[in-house]
Design a protein around this nucleic acid. Sequence first.
DNA 1: CTTTAAAGTTACCAAATAGTAGCGTTATTG
DNA 2: CAATAACGCTACTATTTGGTAACTTTAAAG
Lengths: 206, 206
Amino acid sequence: MSFLTKLSFKDQTFKLRETAILDATTKLLAEKGFDLITMDDVADAVGLSKPSLYKHFKSKEELVIEAMVRLVDEALAYLEKLPDTLGPLERLQSLLEWALRVRLGGGLPFLPSTSAHVRAFLTQSPRYILRALKLHRLLDAVVTEAKRNGELASELPNDVILYSYYARTCDPAVEYLRLYGKYDDETIVAHMHSVCFAGLGARPNR
Amino acid sequence: MSFLTKLSFKDQTFKLRETAILDATTKLLAEKGFDLITMDDVADAVGLSKPSLYKHFKSKEELVIEAMVRLVDEALAYLEKLPDTLGPLERLQSLLEWALRVRLGGGLPFLPSTSAHVRAFLTQSPRYILRALKLHRLLDAVVTEAKRNGELASELPNDVILYSYYARTCDPAVEYLRLYGKYDDETIVAHMHSVCFAGLGARPNR
DNA sequence: CTTTAAAGTTACCAAATAGTAGCGTTATTG
DNA sequence: CAATAACGCTACTATTTGGTAACTTTAAAG
């Protein structure tokens, strides 16, 4: 028996279940938000009983932290996977579009804009903070580079750009556009992209 | 005794208490969000007992609805009070700045971006819907006018502009800028204003 | 096939909290 | 000053829900 199959069957299903739980949590978080989710909801969604959940995650908050950690990891992976040929502005645009598509596909908005409670315990979690800071620092460098290229507004401080950028990935306008605007996903992405980088004001005609 | 003083003392204090309750609710909503507020919190904040609250508002949800109704009414009043000399873009800019200052001063973000639950019962409340729609229609006309003047991006549909505009009044970037950016309120307002109308991209140098 | 250890489940507990019943108190009216 | 009606408060209930104890089943190992 190989080293890999040594941990098999039980441990494999355990791991599978863990991702299933995180998937369900992610979906529910996107739909209802932290406070409206009960642990029974999560258990039902994944076809498990509540105590089994606690075999994997020791509390509701840790469950959500892990879901967010996974999300930030995906963002980091996406950013690193981008071809080297892409310029800084293109990287930012690509990541924004990725984040919007994740959300439109039923995923989480990253950035805990949802509730003060969630933000509080997320910012207490070293696991989360570590990744969020890493992403933040990476993007900060990209923004600096983009400004140097004259691709971003040099009159705006980096943190204003970054926080506004994050905010756009969890912009409630997305939901309103889908709900009331009846646009398809790609149209929403295009519009959000346009608003994010060019604003609402009239654009100069070249 | 005049007709006015007829309702006096008790009824006057009753009315005063009502606005005090709404003030406290507004402040708490801005601080903690709907789900983390208990009716005891509100009662304590205004120096009352919980059952007295229920003499004024028959449920927690109705209390929040009334707070939001009052907020939208204030926005409507602000919009109507603007001098006729202001152009459409200036009106939008002025209202955005007003909304941001309200928030920075401890008030509510309008638009129920906080929780799915809040949004659900707000959009069920005729009292709220009525006002929200009225504001929406007013602003829609202003946007159309601004586009005609070449002051807003004519390539964006009105609803994209409006939902993005609303989103900017409750943008989480505001809190992050205050918390981590250490900017004073007026600087935040100026930056948000800039980001909203001109976007993050490089601006044309005239 | 038997043993054993882990995983899953049912049934439960404890805390929090929205909402209420009924009593004490205060202010208005005659 | 006396009567009364409304107002506010203390103390309670019911429900929801995060979390757990102990029993049962399943699967790996000899």
